[in-house]
């Protein structure tokens, strides 16, 4: 193990490390801690310039209550859910099929189709912006959640295919060969043999895509504009315009907007990291 395990080092260094750890963490999360503190302060603290002192009272319920009751925030959150969940399902479904096709069959042009997905996944959004916006307008889906979902599914299929294909390639080939010898059809092999083995990959992709899509801002402002369809990342700017200079509310709003992916991450940590670090180890 590198660096030397702390248990094998000298006592003073062990103690230094143990105290350094929490300090480093606080320093690292300082901007976030500041916002969390802001979000529970009462309005009066900002008027009396008590920005960094002890809160004069703890207004957790008032502030967060106002975020949910006094603004469009619940609608934005709901929109985010209605955009994110279908995208996750769609992208995972499509890419488990494309990944299967590219990972199992050695047909001509396989690698080029695979590279098309990989390259497309890295393209800057701006090169797609004008045509995708026009396409969405032409389909009558501008400023709808459906329009946003369809694009997200398509774009995420690139990354997901890369992921799925590499995962499926690492599966034991003999299993599929054996099934073929038994005369099992290709579709049944996909459904009954390969899909059950892909569960870890499906879980990893689902949490990753959830986070990516929940946090998307660019496409939200390109393809939607009102509270009827905008997700929370875009909604937070109108929320902030509504509560300009009310820092306690803007902080509370930001925390609410950021929370779902954070919860997802802590609940599904193992899968999340497995997905993110794919390829970091040979």
């Amino acid at each position: 193990m590198f660096p030397t395990p702390i248990a094998k080092t000298s006592r003073p260094w062990q103690l230094t490390y143990q105290t350094l750890l929490p300090f480093a963490l606080i320093l690292w999360l300082l901007p976030l801690i500041a916002v969390a503190v802001f979000s529970i302060k009462p309005d009066g603290d900002f008027a009396s310039a008590n920005y960094w002192g002890w809160p004069s009272s703890f207004n957790f319920i008032e502030n967060y209550g106002l975020v949910f009751a006094g603004s469009d925030m619940p609608r934005y959150l709901l929109n985010s859910v209605l955009i994110t969940v279908p995208t996750v399902l769609g992208a995972v479904a499509l890419s488990s099929m494309t990944g299967f096709a590219l990972g199992i069959y050695g047909f001509r042009g396989n690698i080029w189709i695979f590279f098309m997905f990989v390259a497309g996944n890295f393209v800057p959004f701006q090169i797609l912006m004008v045509p995708v916006r026009e396409l969405t307008l032409d389909m009558g889906l501008y400023d709808t959640k459906t329009g946003l979902v369809l694009f997200h599914i398509a774009f995420q299929t690139g990354f997901c295919t890369l992921f799925m294909r590499n995962f499926i390639r690492a599966l034991p080939k003999e299993l599929i060969e054996a099934a073929r010898v038994e005369g099992v059809s290709e579709f049944r092999i996909f459904w009954y043999v390969v899909l059950p083995l892909m569960k870890p990959a499906l879980a990893a992709l689902a949490v990753l895509i959830f986070t990516f899509i929940w946090n998307d801002y660019f496409w939200a402002i390109v393809l939607t504009q009102g509270a009827d369809s905008q997700p929370v990342t875009a909604g937070i700017t109108s929320f902030n315009a509504q509560y300009r200079a009310a820092y306690h509310l803007m902080s509370a709003g930001s925390i609410v907007a950021a929370l779902p992916p954070v919860a997802m991450f802590f609940l599904m940590q193992r899968h999340f990291i497995a997905g993110l670090t794919l390829g970091a180890v040979k």
């Binding site: 986070t211 946090n215 991450f265």
Partner: peptide, 11 residues
Amino acid sequence: FFFPFVISQVV
């Protein structure tokens, strides 16, 4: 320590 990556860039 990994936490900041999960938060949206907007926040």
